[in-house]
Amino acid sequence: MATIEARGLSLTYRTEDGPVHALSDVSLTVASGEFVSLIGPSGCGKTTLLRVIADLEKPTGGTVRVNGVTPEEARLRRDYGYVFQAPALLPWRRIESNVTLPLEVMGVSRAERRARAQRQLEMVGLGGFGRKFPWQLSGGMQQRASIARALAFDPALLLMDEPFGALDEIVRDHLNEQLLALWARTQKTVVFVTHSIPEAVFLSTRIVVMSPRPGRITDVVPCDLGPQRPLEIRETPEFLRIAQRVREGLRAGHSYEV
């Protein structure tokens, strides 16, 4: 059953320099339990597509259904766990109350909130850090806290917008492994925006390659490396073959013309 079904999506911004086609005729189906990456250079509309799915942006054409309803209905029934590029933790709340923020909004009881925050923080390896304030944590830990926050209310969909883009490579590798384990455990449907080819290949079951001006899909690459993916898998021929195809897809989209 399709979790996300986008048909002929387009989104055009009116600006003073004329219209900008952020999305042009984008069609995409994501099945339940999939891990789909959107990859492409800046301006290819990958973040816009994610925001349209999450009802943070309204498309100017086409339709999206999320679990059979419109994005707005899905948002109102709290289907989305959204992780932004920045952790976006509220600086005046301790880590645990940042994680309980969505639960407070959704009216979960205090005891239940605390139990769930503890569980989620342990799942992302921040068990002992609940009483810290955000600034007391490193960037990688803050982003893990924001993932715990997104998972706290057990959303149907996890939408991640370059969550590790601002982190160094060592931290990023580590978090990629953790995210994979998390995904295997929770069986969530994930849509993941990135501009890193190795990251996309390492994490995904399918990679959607996009190109800019106008933002469109140029290739969809299946990525069937199986559920067990140690970091070393990145040296295997299979991995490199998929990475190569993604790279070609990006090049075919004239994405590196300057």
Binding site: A54, D55, L56, R75, L76, R78, Y80, G81, Y82, F84, A86, A88, L90, L101, P102, E104, V105, M106, F153
Partner: peptide, 21 residues
């Protein structure tokens, strides 16, 4: 905008955005 988007993904009410953010 980020924090407001975050509250929007939770479909927080105006009152909740006011008091919590």
């Amino acid at each position: 905008l980020l924090a407001r988007d975050l509250m929007r993904t939770y479909s927080a009410s105006r009152a909740q955005v006011f008091w919590k953010l």
